[in-house]
């Protein structure tokens, strides 16, 4: 199989009349990586994918595949292929004819063509169904055939538009794992668009968070989760407790922030006097004295048993914190607890 290509998006904007779908987006994607573009609807993620695939022209900026400028190439002449959200399998063709369509268009015929089709059906785990009608396939099977059809012409970059959106939850999680495996096997650069953050976390080498046509945050799933760059990405990817405050003192490595929960000294950089937000994940708060920072006493006003943890709402003065505690010991509703945390688990958002 061909190796994946480096994909570079250089200061790309897309305007539709007065509205701005993408605003100066720049992005560099390593060869052979699995990139997930994550964002709520209207964030511009589908527009970005459409620009990469060549179905839309940017208002300004350039798109490069390796060192080649493809900005003005039509879809047919780009080393990219797209897996469409509705799969777009041709209903009047068999599975084999669908997968072979791109090969025929690239003048690959005869034995070579049938071998490639056969091999690709093997890769997506559907060997021997060349002669089936695509209309007789289940949703999951159609998804794989669409994948095979796009991969068989050996694109340098594969674009996937909400590829799992039409599947039910269980199938989605299963296909999610398979997608990752297929990508590792073929080595093509995958660019996958979704609004499902769990999908993004489990598949991506790199997640790009898009909001209102701008890149909000990017990085590995771990760094994005543990070190979100903005309030939006801190709350869009899982829950966060956000504590507003003002920086009252700084050292080389720490800041002391005045908050409604007292002065908290945490690692990070900010200028003295700045208004900042401290973010901390619910699972990093403790309902005992085990943490180095004491946030104070609070009353448990609500508790849900989730299975792997118990999720508590804790009233601390005039504000509420979400705390995920281990399932033992059970925390009774109405009880008063001391909430603590480790300084390292706070993220300073400017």
């Amino acid at each position: 199989m061909t190796r994946g290509a480096r994909l570079t998006v250089d200061d790309v904007s897309k305007h539709y009349g007065a509205s701005v779908a993408l605003d100066s987006v720049s992005l560099s994607i390593d060869p052979g990586s699995y990139v997930v573009i994550l964002g709520p609807s209207g964030s511009g993620k589908t527009t970005l994918l459409s620009l990469l695939g060549g179905f839309t022209q940017p208002t300004s900026g350039r798109i490069l595949v390796d060192d080649g400028d493809v900005t003005h190439l039509p879809p047919a002449r780009r080393p990219t292929t797209t897996v469409f959200q509705d799969y777009a399998l041709f209903p009047h063709m068999t599975v084999g004819q669908n997968i072979g369509f791109g090969l025929t268009m690239h003048k690959i015929r005869g034995d070579e063509r049938s071998e490639k089709i056969e091999r690709m059906l093997g890769v997506v785990g559907l060997p021997g169904i060349e002669d089936r009608a695509v209309t007789s396939l289940s949703g999951g099977q159609q998804q794989r055939v669409a994948l095979a059809r796009a991969l068989v012409i050996e694109p340098r970059v594969l674009l996937l538009d909400e590829p799992l959106g039409a599947l039910d939850l269980k199938l989605r999680r299963q296909m999610q794992d398979e997608l990752g495996e297929i990508q590792r096997r073929v080595g093509t650069t995958f660019v996958h668009v979704t609004h499902d953050q769990e999908e993004a976390m489990s598949l991506a080498d790199v997640v790009v968070v898009l909001r209102d046509g701008r890149i909000e945050d990017q990085g590995s799933p771990e760094s994005l989760y543990l070190q979100p760059a903005t309030r939006f990405s801190a709350t869009f990817m899982g829950d966060s407790n956000l504590i507003d405050g003002r920086v009252v003192r700084t050292t080389d490595e720490t800041v002391e922030v005045e908050t409604s929960l007292g002065n908290l000294t945490v690692p990070g950089r900010a200028s003295e006097g700045a208004e900042v937000t401290l973010a901390i994940r619910p699972e990093h708060l403790r309902a005992d004295r085990g943490g180095d920072i004491v946030l104070g006493e609070g009353r448990i006003t609500g508790r849900h048993f989730i299975g792997m943890h118990q999720r508590c709402r804790i009233q601390m003065g005039d504000r509420e914190l979400i705390l995920n505690a281990p399932t033992k010991p059970l925390l009774p509703e109405g009880a008063t607890v001391v909430v603590t945390a480790h300084p390292d688990d706070f993220v300073v958002l400017i």
């Binding site: 039509p74 509705d86 777009a88 041709f90």
Partner: peptide
């Protein structure tokens, strides 16, 4: 005919 069918054909190299 969904527009994506024509897009897919163009994407796969069809004139």
């Amino acid at each position: 005919i969904p527009e994506s069918y024509r897009k897919a054909a163009r994407d796969l190299g069809a004139s």
